[in-house]
Design a protein around this nucleic acid. Structure first.
Lengths: 399, 399
DNA sequence: TCGACTAACTCCAAATGATGGATTTATAGG
DNA sequence: CCTATAAATCCATCATTTGGAGTTAGTCGA
């Protein structure tokens, strides 16, 4: 009390920070325009003076992040010189530690996957050995991609929640025995020599979706991830919601009800699937779900009912969350979603469109991810890009 | 496409903005320390250099926002000169348009209520006349408080959702016939001569709670408002969540189930309350709820059951939201909450403490507002203070 | 009582980055 | 070939933070 302990108050801002920030703003604008963007257009779009834009683009050109890509003549006057991103100027690596698979990807500045590797997650092995194996996968990825080492910004790690962001590890993961409180971030950083950051897989996924996926233009979106577990990644007012401990996006009871384990158990109990689909290893769940989807597609009513009920449950949860957070875009993805999307999307879409909130306020887009099964791994890499290159007002503050 | 239309991209930042922002940061830090804070402490807390702090505090002193309030000697050396807020340096006015009552308050820089007025919301009168009456209440408030006109920053308006923030009006409010799409913000601004802003009542309430209420230190909190309707005000990562259209915090079906109308109907159907408590006018609902609380306190089991079931419903909703958003503080308030708090808080508190997410991650405080029945009106005024004086990184961007 | 010491605060020159006006550059059209 | 026009850059200016030196106001010990 009384000034002895100085609590963490908001930090001030700084001249050099403004420079860096505006650089990010310009880079961001260029990145978002695949066709290229001229300096005047940048000035108009960002509100900066033409002079400032000129200086900043010069710095970006010097750093090799941007190049001039031609001219566009608009009638009279000097034609605009277009600027575009040099995708190979920087890279980021992402690792997704999932109960079913461990995926590593290397992406470029635009989030395009340059190289990737996946392996089934070993059950009950030596955690240290598995982590070492992850690190060597990352190193191999960097080597085979031919990317300059010094152009690699860092390593992003996505893991199922709950996590402890400050410690850089996973907390009591039900489906990941052995990984609880294992110092994953430190170990991978040390073993690869890259700066590393850890976040929840769903948070990573929503960042990917904003960076390169289906929702690059939305400032308020919700990503529902359906994999071994399920959860939501949240972006509101152009900022990724992380919450007190980085665990925002947990869906409580809904998550358990949507787990592949619960669905398969229901299917087996109803006799739709045989006992051979009982999951001990989450890696096998996707096969069971695929079988279930096939049966449903072939007209098996009970299989279809299971999927439809799942869709309705998810639809309710998503509507509640979309109402609470006032988003205009909902994206679905994850390995299990990929299998069931065709059946579930037509159920969920009208639920959202018909929800009282949506009808009273504004239309809400419902989409499937365009990034495929490894959204979360791409997301892990996107976390790095996002931190290093995106223009977040927060970055103006002094740490 | 292709650069013809320039989409809204993030805006750059500016030197003068940095100055203003840092001024806000310092003011914010001083405001949060009732005992006063010296320049060195400010420098350490904000990360700014001693010089910058010195310059900024001089500006604040010149503006009369801050004064030197004594010295504190800490052993050797020159004693620190303490700085404190001058509460009367600025004022803000807040109006809460509620289906039951219209409340106006005038608060000072610290959010302390200097003057207030309330009246029952007229049913079905001439909207224009009522708005004019609100405006004259505001003028009367300003006159009787004796506050310098030029020290009044503006007028905040809180209204039940859904709202349209850009238009500055309420959209189809079920309990506020006649107010749908009425240009409330413009009219009140014109009639009072003050710049006005409109937000949802629950959003206003959460801002109040952070400015002066029970949660001035939490950066992640959730406010559950229980009045004629109900909803949540959300703050995550130190920013107020507003969403696409400013309607974040709606609770869908839960909101309807928690409305005083629904509760009283249930009580009447069960014969706990007589038919005379049927509400046509929301202003009468509070009386019925008070009667219900009295019966429960007197040991009437059915009345008690109604309240307990309500508490459980709210508890579930709040747990789900707290899990989704990863907050560490939950605050309850609103006119109906005031009446039922004693019975409901003991039900909800253990639900939160026992929820799987809370147990797995971090303790979560459950509190009642300290601002009484007119949280929302105080909140409306706080919206003005918050916009004008709080340090939001967002404010660094050029509009 | 006086001087040494220490910490808080302020003055001054330097650095950084955005801004506004004038200037150069590149194209289209007559 | 000249002019009009729009894009991009040069130059001087302004606002703000920063770092080091200097000033101020206390405490402590002799």
């Amino acid at each position: 009390m009384g000034g002895v302990t100085t609590p963490a108050i908001r930090r001030g801002a700084n001249l050099p920070r403004v420079g860096d920030f505006n650089e990010s703003v310009i880079l961001d604008a260029i990145r978002r325009h695949p066709t290229g963007l001229s300096r005047v257009e940048l000035a108009r779009a960002t509100g900066l003076s033409a002079q400032a834009v000129s200086n900043i683009t010069r710095r970006l050109l010097d750093q090799g992040l941007v190049r001039e890509s031609g001219k566009r003549s608009g009638g009279n006057g000097k034609p605009r010189t277009l600027l575009e991103i040099v995708p190979a100027a920087r890279y980021a690596v992402g690792v997704h530690l999932d109960p079913a698979v461990i995926t590593c990807v290397l992406v470029d500045l635009l989030g395009t996957v340059i190289a990737q590797r996946g392996r089934r997650t070993p059950r009950g092995g030596e955690t240290d050995a598995i982590a070492a194996d992850m690190a060597s996968s990352v190193s191999a990825l960097m080597a085979e991609s031919g990317a300059d080492r010094e152009r690699i910004l860092g390593l992003g790690i996505a893991a199922p929640g709950p996590i402890d962001v400050t410690a850089g590890w996973v907390v009591d993961p039900p489906e990941l025995p052995g990984w609880g409180r294992y110092p994953l971030r430190e170990r991978l950083s040390a073993a690869t020599g890259l700066p590393a950051l850890l976040d929840k897989d769903v948070t990573a996924a929503v960042v990917a979706e904003r960076w390169t996926g289906a929702a690059t233009d939305s400032r308020n979106l919700l990503f529902f991830y359906l994999g071994t577990g399920s959860g939501m990644g949240l972006v509101v007012d152009d900022t990724v919601l992380r919450g007190v401990s980085g665990n925002a996006g947990e869906v409580g009871g809904l998550g358990a009800a949507c787990s592949s384990r619960a669905i398969l158990e229901e299917a087996i109990a109803l006799g739709v699937l045989g006992g051979e689909y009982t999951v001990t290893d989450p890696a096998e769940a996707q096969g069971g779900m695929r079988r279930l989807a096939e049966l449903a597609a072939a007209g098996q009513a009970q299989a279809d009912g299971i999927i439809e009920r799942l869709a309705i449950r998810i639809g309710r949860g998503v509507c509640a969350a979309a109402t609470l957070l006032d988003v205009d875009t909902i994206v679905f993805g994850g390995p299990i979603w990929q299998v069931l999307a065709d059946r579930m999307l037509p159920v969920i879409e009208p639920m959202v469109a018909g929800s009282p909130f949506v009808k009273a306020t504004h239309p809400t887009a419902v989409l499937s991810t365009t990034l495929g099964e490894n959204v979360a791994a791409v997301g892990a890499a996107s976390l790095v890009l996002d931190q290093a290159l995106s223009a977040q007002p927060r970055s103006l503050l002094l740490g």
